[in-house]
Protein backbone atom coordinates (compact mmCIF):
# COMPACT_ATOMS: atom_id res chain seq x y z
CA UNK A 1 0.00 0.00 0.00
CA UNK A 2 1.50 3.28 -1.02
CA UNK A 3 0.64 6.06 1.36
CA UNK A 4 2.03 9.52 0.97
CA UNK A 5 2.15 10.81 4.51
CA UNK A 6 2.63 14.55 4.46
CA UNK A 7 4.70 15.54 7.47
CA UNK A 8 2.32 18.36 8.31
CA UNK A 9 -0.93 16.34 8.22
CA UNK A 10 -3.24 17.38 11.05
CA UNK A 11 -5.56 14.42 10.58
CA UNK A 12 -4.16 11.16 9.26
CA UNK A 13 -6.00 7.95 8.50
CA UNK A 14 -3.83 5.00 7.43
CA UNK A 15 -5.25 1.77 6.06
CA UNK A 16 -8.39 2.05 8.17
CA UNK A 17 -10.88 -0.82 8.02
CA UNK A 18 -14.20 -1.32 9.73
CA UNK A 19 -16.89 -3.97 9.52
CA UNK A 20 -20.46 -4.02 10.76
CA UNK A 21 -20.86 -7.78 10.94
CA UNK A 22 -20.62 -8.93 7.32
CA UNK A 23 -20.72 -5.41 5.93
CA UNK A 24 -17.31 -3.91 5.15
CA UNK A 25 -18.13 -0.22 5.75
CA UNK A 26 -14.64 1.24 5.56
CA UNK A 27 -12.22 -0.37 3.12
CA UNK A 28 -8.57 0.51 3.49
CA UNK A 29 -9.12 4.23 3.96
CA UNK A 30 -6.13 6.55 3.60
CA UNK A 31 -6.81 10.23 4.14
CA UNK A 32 -4.53 13.06 5.18
CA UNK A 33 -5.81 16.51 5.96
CA UNK A 34 -3.41 19.42 6.34
CA UNK A 35 -3.85 22.27 8.74
CA UNK A 36 -6.29 24.85 7.39
CA UNK A 37 -7.60 22.52 4.72
CA UNK A 38 -11.32 22.09 4.05
CA UNK A 39 -12.13 18.57 2.89
CA UNK A 40 -15.65 17.78 1.77
CA UNK A 41 -16.68 14.13 1.76
CA UNK A 42 -19.52 13.25 -0.59
CA UNK A 43 -21.02 10.07 -1.88
CA UNK A 44 -24.22 8.06 -2.03
CA UNK A 45 -25.88 7.05 1.23
CA UNK A 46 -24.41 3.92 2.75
CA UNK A 47 -21.01 4.70 1.28
CA UNK A 48 -19.44 4.97 4.74
CA UNK A 49 -18.82 8.71 4.79
CA UNK A 50 -20.58 9.31 8.14
CA UNK A 51 -18.78 6.33 9.66
CA UNK A 52 -15.49 7.80 8.44
CA UNK A 53 -16.31 11.14 10.04
CA UNK A 54 -17.34 9.56 13.35
CA UNK A 55 -14.27 7.32 13.41
CA UNK A 56 -11.99 10.37 13.50
CA UNK A 57 -13.01 11.18 17.09
CA UNK A 58 -13.65 7.54 17.89
CA UNK A 59 -17.42 7.71 18.22
CA UNK A 60 -17.02 4.67 15.97
CA UNK A 61 -14.24 2.21 16.70
CA UNK A 62 -12.18 0.81 13.83
CA UNK A 63 -11.05 -2.77 13.25
CA UNK A 64 -7.54 -2.02 11.99
CA UNK A 65 -5.38 0.72 10.62
CA UNK A 66 -4.57 3.86 12.56
CA UNK A 67 -5.84 7.38 12.98
CA UNK A 68 -3.77 10.23 14.32
CA UNK A 69 -4.58 13.83 15.10
CA UNK A 70 -1.82 16.41 15.16
CA UNK A 71 0.72 13.60 15.28
CA UNK A 72 -0.95 11.84 18.21
CA UNK A 73 -2.45 8.40 17.73
CA UNK A 74 -6.08 8.12 18.72
CA UNK A 75 -6.08 6.54 22.21
CA UNK A 76 -8.27 3.56 23.08
CA UNK A 77 -10.62 4.85 25.77
CA UNK A 78 -10.51 6.85 28.99
CA UNK A 79 -8.95 10.15 29.92
CA UNK A 80 -6.57 10.50 26.99
CA UNK A 81 -9.32 9.90 24.49
CA UNK A 82 -11.47 12.49 26.26
CA UNK A 83 -8.72 15.10 26.12
CA UNK A 84 -8.08 14.37 22.46
CA UNK A 85 -11.78 14.73 21.70
CA UNK A 86 -11.68 18.15 23.31
CA UNK A 87 -9.42 19.19 20.40
CA UNK A 88 -11.79 17.83 17.76
CA UNK A 89 -15.04 19.73 17.29
CA UNK A 90 -18.02 17.72 16.11
CA UNK A 91 -21.29 18.91 14.60
CA UNK A 92 -24.03 16.32 14.24
CA UNK A 93 -26.88 15.94 11.79
CA UNK A 94 -29.40 16.05 14.64
CA UNK A 95 -27.73 19.00 16.48
CA UNK A 96 -27.69 17.13 19.82
CA UNK A 97 -27.83 20.26 21.95
CA UNK A 98 -28.12 19.38 25.65
CA UNK A 99 -31.90 19.51 26.04
CA UNK A 100 -31.92 20.50 29.74
CA UNK A 101 -29.39 23.33 29.42
CA UNK A 102 -29.85 26.86 28.10
CA UNK A 103 -28.20 27.92 24.86
CA UNK A 104 -25.50 29.77 26.80
CA UNK A 105 -24.90 26.77 29.10
CA UNK A 106 -24.64 24.49 26.08
CA UNK A 107 -21.69 26.55 24.88
CA UNK A 108 -20.02 27.15 28.27
CA UNK A 109 -20.32 23.62 29.67
CA UNK A 110 -17.31 22.24 27.78
CA UNK A 111 -14.91 25.09 28.57
CA UNK A 112 -15.95 25.14 32.26
CA UNK A 113 -16.12 21.40 32.97
CA UNK A 114 -13.48 20.05 30.60
CA UNK A 115 -10.97 22.89 30.36
CA UNK A 116 -11.56 24.46 33.77
CA UNK A 117 -12.18 27.96 32.39
CA UNK A 118 -13.70 30.38 34.93
CA UNK A 119 -17.44 30.87 34.48
CA UNK A 120 -17.28 34.62 33.84
CA UNK A 121 -14.68 34.17 31.13
CA UNK A 122 -16.52 31.21 29.58
CA UNK A 123 -19.76 33.24 29.52
CA UNK A 124 -18.01 36.13 27.79
CA UNK A 125 -16.41 33.94 25.15
CA UNK A 126 -19.64 31.99 24.63
CA UNK A 127 -21.62 35.19 24.08
CA UNK A 128 -19.04 36.34 21.51
CA UNK A 129 -19.36 33.00 19.69
CA UNK A 130 -23.16 33.09 19.80
CA UNK A 131 -23.09 36.62 18.37
CA UNK A 132 -20.73 35.43 15.68
CA UNK A 133 -23.14 32.69 14.55
CA UNK A 134 -26.06 35.12 14.85
CA UNK A 135 -27.97 33.73 17.83
CA UNK A 136 -26.68 35.94 20.66
CA UNK A 137 -30.16 37.10 21.64
CA UNK A 138 -31.28 33.48 22.15
CA UNK A 139 -28.75 32.81 24.93
CA UNK A 140 -31.19 32.35 27.85
CA UNK A 141 -33.57 30.06 25.92
CA UNK A 142 -33.71 26.27 25.88
CA UNK A 143 -32.77 24.38 22.69
CA UNK A 144 -36.34 23.26 21.95
CA UNK A 145 -37.38 26.93 21.65
CA UNK A 146 -35.06 27.49 18.68
CA UNK A 147 -35.49 26.59 15.01
CA UNK A 148 -33.36 23.81 13.54
CA UNK A 149 -31.05 26.25 11.78
CA UNK A 150 -30.53 28.23 14.97
CA UNK A 151 -29.88 25.04 16.95
CA UNK A 152 -27.28 23.90 14.45
CA UNK A 153 -25.51 27.27 14.64
CA UNK A 154 -25.46 26.94 18.44
CA UNK A 155 -24.00 23.43 17.99
CA UNK A 156 -21.22 24.96 15.87
CA UNK A 157 -20.60 27.59 18.57
CA UNK A 158 -20.51 24.84 21.21
CA UNK A 159 -17.82 23.00 19.26
CA UNK A 160 -15.84 26.20 18.59
CA UNK A 161 -15.89 27.09 22.30
CA UNK A 162 -13.41 24.26 22.87
CA UNK A 163 -10.99 25.98 20.43
CA UNK A 164 -10.63 22.77 18.41
CA UNK A 165 -7.77 22.02 16.03
CA UNK A 166 -10.17 20.51 13.53
CA UNK A 167 -13.94 20.56 13.05
CA UNK A 168 -15.92 17.53 11.87
CA UNK A 169 -19.35 18.07 10.32
CA UNK A 170 -21.54 14.99 9.90
CA UNK A 171 -24.25 16.01 7.42
CA UNK A 172 -24.89 19.28 9.28
CA UNK A 173 -27.74 20.42 7.04
CA UNK A 174 -29.48 17.13 6.29
CA UNK A 175 -32.08 17.52 9.06
CA UNK A 176 -32.90 21.13 8.19
CA UNK A 177 -35.76 22.72 6.31
CA UNK A 178 -34.51 24.11 2.96
CA UNK A 179 -34.83 27.74 4.02
CA UNK A 180 -32.57 27.14 7.01
CA UNK A 181 -29.76 25.41 5.18
CA UNK A 182 -28.09 28.59 4.00
CA UNK A 183 -27.85 30.22 7.42
CA UNK A 184 -25.82 27.21 8.57
CA UNK A 185 -23.72 26.99 5.40
CA UNK A 186 -22.91 30.72 5.67
CA UNK A 187 -21.44 30.15 9.13
CA UNK A 188 -19.42 27.21 7.80
CA UNK A 189 -18.12 29.15 4.80
CA UNK A 190 -17.07 31.97 7.13
CA UNK A 191 -15.28 29.43 9.31
CA UNK A 192 -13.49 27.97 6.29
CA UNK A 193 -12.34 31.45 5.23
CA UNK A 194 -10.91 32.04 8.69
CA UNK A 195 -8.62 29.07 8.17
CA UNK A 196 -10.32 26.40 10.30
CA UNK A 197 -9.39 22.84 9.36
CA UNK A 198 -12.65 21.17 8.43
CA UNK A 199 -13.86 17.74 7.37
CA UNK A 200 -17.41 18.04 6.11
CA UNK A 201 -19.71 15.18 5.16
CA UNK A 202 -22.51 16.73 3.15
CA UNK A 203 -24.86 16.54 0.21
CA UNK A 204 -24.53 20.28 -0.42
CA UNK A 205 -22.62 20.42 -3.69
CA UNK A 206 -22.79 24.22 -3.66
CA UNK A 207 -20.84 24.26 -0.42
CA UNK A 208 -18.30 21.82 -1.84
CA UNK A 209 -17.71 24.06 -4.87
CA UNK A 210 -17.53 27.23 -2.84
CA UNK A 211 -15.53 26.29 0.26
CA UNK A 212 -13.71 23.01 -0.32
CA UNK A 213 -10.00 22.69 -0.99
CA UNK A 214 -10.51 19.02 -1.76
CA UNK A 215 -13.46 16.82 -2.51
CA UNK A 216 -13.28 13.21 -1.39
CA UNK A 217 -15.78 10.96 -3.13
CA UNK A 218 -16.71 7.74 -1.36
CA UNK A 219 -18.63 4.74 -2.63
CA UNK A 220 -19.09 1.29 -1.07
CA UNK A 221 -16.73 2.06 1.81
CA UNK A 222 -13.85 3.18 -0.40
CA UNK A 223 -12.36 6.53 -1.32
CA UNK A 224 -12.89 6.52 -5.07
CA UNK A 225 -11.72 10.03 -5.90
CA UNK A 226 -9.75 12.69 -4.08
CA UNK A 227 -9.50 15.87 -6.11
CA UNK A 228 -10.00 19.63 -6.16
CA UNK A 229 -13.66 20.70 -6.53
CA UNK A 230 -13.10 21.96 -10.13
CA UNK A 231 -11.44 18.74 -11.15
CA UNK A 232 -14.06 16.57 -9.47
CA UNK A 233 -17.18 18.37 -10.67
CA UNK A 234 -15.96 19.18 -14.18
CA UNK A 235 -13.93 16.13 -14.93
CA UNK A 236 -14.70 13.16 -12.69
CA UNK A 237 -12.47 10.20 -13.47
CA UNK A 238 -14.33 7.18 -12.14
CA UNK A 239 -17.57 5.88 -13.58
CA UNK A 240 -18.96 5.70 -10.02
CA UNK A 241 -18.48 9.45 -9.58
CA UNK A 242 -19.81 10.22 -13.05
CA UNK A 243 -22.90 8.18 -12.27
CA UNK A 244 -23.37 9.94 -8.90
CA UNK A 245 -22.98 13.42 -10.38
CA UNK A 246 -25.28 12.74 -13.30
CA UNK A 247 -28.06 11.75 -10.91
CA UNK A 248 -27.61 14.98 -9.01
CA UNK A 249 -27.67 17.19 -12.07
CA UNK A 250 -30.67 15.74 -13.85
CA UNK A 251 -33.09 17.41 -11.43
Amino acid sequence: MTTQVPGNALVSLNAVNKHYGQLHVLKDINLHVRKGEVVVVIGPSGSGKSTLCRAINRLETIDDGDISIDGKMLPEEGKELASLRADVGMVFQSFNLFAHKTILENVTLGPIKVKGVAKAEADKEAMALLERVGVGHQAPKLPAQLSGGQQQRVAIARALAMKPKVMLFDEPTSALDPEMINEVLDVMIQLAKEGMTMIVVTHEMGFARKAADRVVFMADGQIVEDATPEEFFNNPKSSRAKDFLSKLLTH
Binding site: A86, F98, V114
Partner: peptide, 22 residues
Protein backbone atom coordinates in the same frame (compact mmCIF):
# COMPACT_ATOMS: atom_id res chain seq x y z
CA UNK B 1 -31.29 9.98 23.06
CA UNK B 2 -27.84 8.51 22.37
CA UNK B 3 -26.88 11.74 20.59
CA UNK B 4 -26.81 13.56 23.94
CA UNK B 5 -24.03 11.29 25.18
CA UNK B 6 -22.19 11.49 21.85
CA UNK B 7 -22.27 15.28 21.92
CA UNK B 8 -21.00 15.28 25.49
CA UNK B 9 -18.19 12.87 24.66
CA UNK B 10 -17.27 14.87 21.58
CA UNK B 11 -16.54 17.98 23.65
CA UNK B 12 -14.13 15.94 25.73
CA UNK B 13 -16.20 14.92 28.75
CA UNK B 14 -15.17 11.83 30.72
CA UNK B 15 -17.69 9.04 31.32
CA UNK B 16 -18.45 10.29 34.84
CA UNK B 17 -19.12 13.80 33.52
CA UNK B 18 -21.29 12.59 30.66
CA UNK B 19 -23.36 10.66 33.17
CA UNK B 20 -23.61 13.24 35.94
CA UNK B 21 -23.93 16.41 33.83
CA UNK B 22 -25.89 15.27 30.78
Amino acid sequence: PVGQAEAARSIGMKFSQVLSLI
